[in-house]
Design a protein around this nucleic acid. Structure first.
Lengths: 209, 209
DNA sequence: TAAAAAATACAACGAAAGTTGTATTGTCCT
DNA sequence: AGGACAATACAACTTTCGTTGTATTTTTTA
């Protein structure tokens, strides 16, 4: 069986070499390159055979998040996993948005790291426990303000949706083949039901619902 | 060390008993209850000592997603993990929104299941590889139309943010202690940069960026 | 340092939006 | 059958918004 080629991007030589050594000592992985900043990594990785990248965040010249963005732009299929000490939401979500496929903390045990690389290569997305919990937490937007647009009639909702596309009264009237005065009336009713007093506020409620 | 109390909610007796047996055979877990539908689970679990719930989705009377919603409403701290055959995004995200803390497929190996329960209990969020990848994928909103609000000056962005709160010119002028005419000028500049021609369109761009 | 961009301000005019009130028709629920 | 609501329409009037043009002071950048 072919070995999995792993690249390491990490500015601290000690960690970099430690991880590389551990990877090379394993059966099914081989370290195909070590880079000490995002710039070197971005220049070299596309030229080589790399299956998986382990990426630090804080590095000189180019940080890991920007490096991911650029690497992914060139090759969507490259599997990249963060390996960092940061566990604040900002860094996590910026990384994921940039295209990271996994996110491990540096406190991860070496054997768990190898297992994670394997999972990453198989299309999974390994995350440290606390990271996964934060990611899942973003879906639990519990107490969202009741959607007042529920109270609108279907015609009113239709008209509101035109407002939310930037249509003027006149344009809505044309689109629906009704008079501008009728549009006015509908919109007035919409304002009452949504408890707002302008098109802006109505659009805001509509888009945020 | 105290054992971790695990409840199982699953309509198929074979699976239910199999998992219960496996859990009871382990060192640090004990099955504290088996329920064959969401209704029974919702009625009984709050009365008992339960640390972790393993929850199926498709069940008679009350499905697992609704059951999670209700259990979590009563007790935010209860750790619930889906254990299901479904891996479509709809079911996954509905579960997470309802409050699931983990999501495993039934194909998970028994030893991995036990490890996942342990991780869940420790505040992690174990997910099967393909699930985690889908979850992470939602953050990678790839080809989003370039954020034109980037081109705005900080003052302009500030004013736009007031528009997006529903403020009128007069109110913005007051809030920033500048004249209404200056607000007008700024907003006109904003429209030029965003290539829009009304407050509505500007707000739409701002909220969708 | 010279040019460009940002922040500020005033003003006048026309266009769009918002308010208030009235009215007709059809549907749905009680 | 009567009442409530939705959809439609018209109109007069007020307020807010958007356009155009000019101008001064900083700040930034080439």
């Amino acid at each position: 069986m072919d070995k999995i080629f792993v690249a390491i991007v990490e500015d601290e030589a000690e960690i970099r070499n430690g991880v590389a050594e551990y990877i090379n000592a394993s059966e099914d992985f081989v370290c195909s390159g070590c880079y000490k900043n995002g710039e070197d990594a971005f220049r070299e990785i596309p030229k080589r055979h790399v299956d998986v990248v382990l990426m630090d965040i804080q590095m000189p010249k180019m940080d890991g998040i920007e490096c991911i963005r650029r690497l992914k732009e060139g090759n969507r299929d490259l599997h990249i996993m963060m390996l960092t000490v940061f566990e604040d939401e900002e860094k996590i979500f910026e990384s994921l948005k940039a295209g990271a496929d996994g996110y491990l903390l540096k406190t991860t045990q070496p054997d768990k790291l190898l297992e994670a690389i394997r999972e990453l290569h198989n299309g999974g997305s390994p995350m440290s426990g606390s990271i996964a919990r934060k990611v899942i937490g973003t879906f639990q937007t519990l107490p969202k303000p009741k959607d007042e647009t529920e109270d609108l009639s279907s015609r009113e909702r239709e008209i509101l949706s035109y407002c939310a596309k930037g249509y003027m009264y006149k344009e809505i009237a044309e689109a629906l083949s009704i008079s501008i005065e009728t549009v006015r009336t509908h919109i007035h009713h919409i304002y009452e039901k949504l408890h707002v007093r302008s098109r802006s506020e109505a659009i805001i409620k509509y888009l945020k619902r």
